[in-house]
Design a protein around this nucleic acid. Structure first.
Length: 744
DNA sequence: ATAGGGTTAG
């Protein structure tokens, strides 16, 4: 303790105008302290930055700014007010010769919840190294929050260490912020460990943990914790319930959701807009638009989130009209509302409408597309094979200087791959610096679907040199790449490595891939053995893969067995009927084929109509079987006749094994084949695209044997490159050959 | 002498 203490008290010498009083100060050991000056009280009432600046000026004039306490008040006001002129606050801060801990904390806090949380950490470091101040119990929650925003696991762990060594190691606020931090970084086990280690927990501790579990996708754990909270007689609040509702939505458990809703009412938990929106969202996620609508109509306050949530509800039910209407009724449409509509179309099998809406958005000029919009639009392009538009979006992203987030990169790679331009996909992949597991996985998928299995494997190996860990999707894509290229040994090897090397338990999807790999290569016994000894029940995809193998290798008994199993799991799977009937047709069992058709008709199943699309000058033209709705239909059929004639003279004989029904007349059989949508698309491509451009066709189903042969021959006879994407993969037709090596 | 943590749609 200082023993020699000089104390000087100075009073104002004379009364001045009351709004401009002289400061009252106390000097201790040559350091001057000012009493709470009336000017400082004005700071709280500032409503404009100009007010702030005026007070700042006055403070400088009367020397109040040199008082650290007063300066810290100014920092606080400029950094944390609604106006939040953080930049200004920082400049003011830099003028303070010896900022006190309070000023540091105010700025660190403000940066933590700003758009640049990294600056919070930089300020923190600056404080550690360039000042004498040490962090206190207020500092830690801010910097930990900044680390959470940045998902900076290492930084947060370091802070955790500092906390443990300091005196604030058991501060409730600090520990709560650590729970939130670990949960945000996806380390729920670490978050939970902090939670359990706490000597005391308050409602925020529970909320952080519950919300953490809910957002991390662990609905059960979140709900379990909610019950645990009840057992401890701790009163849940609105934030708790928001977390619980989010978990309900994930579980899609309407019963329980309704119970939670009534619980909120029963316990008198004070409602607010966010909570109400969460209730609405829960009903939508649980699939009850009726409950959602009832609640929505009763809501007094509604914001864009409420409207958008309701819109999504309609869209999920496939009620696009209601969604559209609601969109029009909203007080205003922000970009999120547009995004909801666009992605609703895109994710519910209506990519064309998604692009039409995207177009509408651009014409409206009210709001600008953001990266979410572009991801949805790119995905719609990918589905349609609309590469002109996809490429345009790519340019748009570059021109607008929009950041290539991993999400966007993934969407671009996927779009280019699925539109058939693998080279462009690789260019995008190679040009970006940040690659997360999805970026890598999409590139592996791209190589795989184009039959470049060896390259896909090499990329996977390269991925392992980075810190990015493969996930289940990566492995599925890798295995499917092996399957498309017939790489049996590699496929088997990677499958066996899954659990021991990559720590991923093989799921139904990966089993299906391996069955496909083995089956395609003709190892039917091994495939059957695998299916029979699976530790998990074989899903429809596994039986489907086996059935596909039977189609290739013509094993009737096994095909019937697989088909039975498949239909038991998915009675509506028309693909199963089609595959089996292909197998019957191949072995000439036309009676069985018609029997199957009868069965299909009786169970109200229709074969999904085949359709093929070609993009010309940014417009996607779609063709159905025997389609003559196209304006150039006459020309297309003339071209088709010419194609067939040229093919015939070069020795082509139609392959009818994949007709779905027995057509008696030979000529009619041929006609049915000629009318296949991919042939119409091909004819249209030939007349409307210049010879230097490849013809890109997207087919919704698998390409049939005959169309495959025709495309090969056409590529040679007309010297054209043809890129056809079917349901499973790409076929590059060039000079009479196909990249799939006739193996698909 | 001043202060802090957890929250919904896409």
């Amino acid at each position: 303790m200082a023993t020699a203490c000089t104390l000087v008290v100075s009073f104002p010498r004379h009364k001045k105008h009351p709004s401009n009083p002289d400061p009252i100060s106390v000097t201790v050991n040559n350091e001057r302290f000012f009493a709470n000056h009336p000017l400082l009280q004005l700071l709280d009432q500032c409503s404009k930055t100009t007010h702030l600046k005026q007070i700042h000026a006055r403070m400088l004039r009367i020397g109040l700014f040199s008082d650290p306490f007063s300066a810290s008040k100014l920092i606080q006001a400029s950094a944390l007010s609604e106006l939040s002129s953080l930049h200004y606050a920082h400049k003011v801060f830099d003028q303070i010769s010896q900022p006190n801990l309070y000023s540091w904390n105010a700025l660190i806090r403000s940066y933590a919840s700003s758009k640049e949380p990294i600056k919070s950490l930089l300020m923190f470091l600056q404080m550690l190294y360039q000042s004498d101040e040490l962090p206190n119990k207020f500092t830690y929650p801010f910097v930990i929050k900044a680390s959470a925003e940045l998902l900076a696991l290492r930084v947060g762990e370091g802070l955790h260490g500092m906390v443990l060594k300091s005196e604030v190691g058991s501060d409730l606020f600090v520990l709560n912020s650590l729970i939130h931090f670990y949960a945000q970084c996806g380390c729920l086990d670490l978050a939970h460990r902090v939670f359990l280690s706490m000597p005391k927990r308050d409602v925020v501790s529970w909320n952080s943990m519950i919300v953490g579990f809910a957002q991390g996708g662990y609905a059960d754990q979140a709900l379990e914790l909610f019950h645990g909270m009840e057992e401890e007689n701790l009163r849940p609040n609105d934030v708790t319930m928001i977390g619980v509702l989010s978990a309900c939505g994930m579980k899609m458990d309407l019963q329980f959701g309704r119970w939670v809703h009534s619980y909120i009412k029963r316990k008198g938990i004070k409602g607010n807009l966010i909570l109400n929106n969460a209730i609405l969202d829960m009903y939508v996620k649980c699939g009850s638009v009726a409950d959602a609508k009832r609640f929505f109509d009763k809501m007094e306050d509604k914001d864009v989130v409420s409207w958008t949530t309701m819109l999504v509800g309609y869209a999920r039910m496939g009620d696009f009209n209601a969604a559209r209407t609601l969109f029009g009724e909203m007080p205003y449409q922000d970009i999120a509302a547009w995004n909801a509509l666009i992605s609703a179309y895109e994710q519910n099998g209506n990519p064309k409408e998604a692009l039409a809406t995207f177009n509408e958005l651009q014409l409206s000029k009210e709001v600008k597309p953001d990266s979410v919009t572009l991801v949805s639009a790119l995905s719609a392009c990918a589905q349609l094979g609309a590469m002109d538009l996809g490429g345009w979006i790519h340019v748009y992203i570059e021109k607008q200087g929009i950041k290539f987030t991993c999400h966007l990169t993934t969407a671009l790679i996927d779009m280019y791959s699925k539109c058939g331009d693998l080279q462009k996909a690789l260019e995008v992949f190679n040009s970006v610096e940040s690659k997360d597991v999805f970026v890598w996985s999409s590139m592996i998928a791209g190589l795989g679907m184009h039959g470049r299995g060896r390259d896909a494997i090499n990329l996977f190996l390269k991925m392992q040199e980075t810190k990015v860990k493969p996930n289940a999707v990566t492995l599925t894509n890798l295995l499917s790449a092996c399957s498309h290229s017939g790489l049996v040994d590699d496929g088997r090897k990677f499958f066996n490595q899954m659990e021991p090397v990559f720590g991923i338990v093989p799921g139904v999807k990966q089993y299906a891939c391996l069955v496909d790999i083995l089956g395609r290569a003709g190892h039917l016994d091994e495939a059957v053995d695998l299916v029979e000894n699976m530790p998990i029940p074989p899903g429809a995809s596994v039986w489907g893969a086996l059935l596909g193998a039977c189609r290739l290798h013509g094993n009737l008994d096994l095909a019937e067995r697989a088909c039975d199993q498949l239909l038991e799991l998915e009675p509506q799977n028309h693909g199963a009927y089609v595959l089996l009937s292909n197998i019957y047709a191949k072995s000439g069992k036309w009676d069985k084929v018609s029997e199957l058709r009868k069965l299909m008709r009786n169970s109200g199943l229709k074969k999904e109509p085949g359709s093929s699309s070609v993009e010309v000058n940014g417009i996607v033209h779609e063709f159905l079987i025997g389609d003559n709705s196209h304006p150039l239909s006459k020309k297309i059929y003339l071209k088709l006749d010419e194609m067939i004639a040229r093919l015939r003279s070069s020795g082509y004989v139609p392959n009818k094994s994949q007709l779905l029904q027995l057509i008696e007349e030979e000529e009619e059989q041929d006609q049915a084949l000629y009318l296949h949508s991919e042939k119409l698309a091909l004819a249209f491509g030939l007349i409307s695209k210049s010879p230097s451009q490849p013809i890109r066709i997207v087919k919704n189903l698998r390409i049939c044997d005959d169309c495959h042969t025709v495309a090969k021959k056409i590529s040679k006879l007309y010297n054209r490159e043809i890129l056809l994407r079917d349901r499973y993969r790409f076929h590059h037709f060039k000079a009479g050959e196909c990249s799939c090596m006739d193996f698909w």
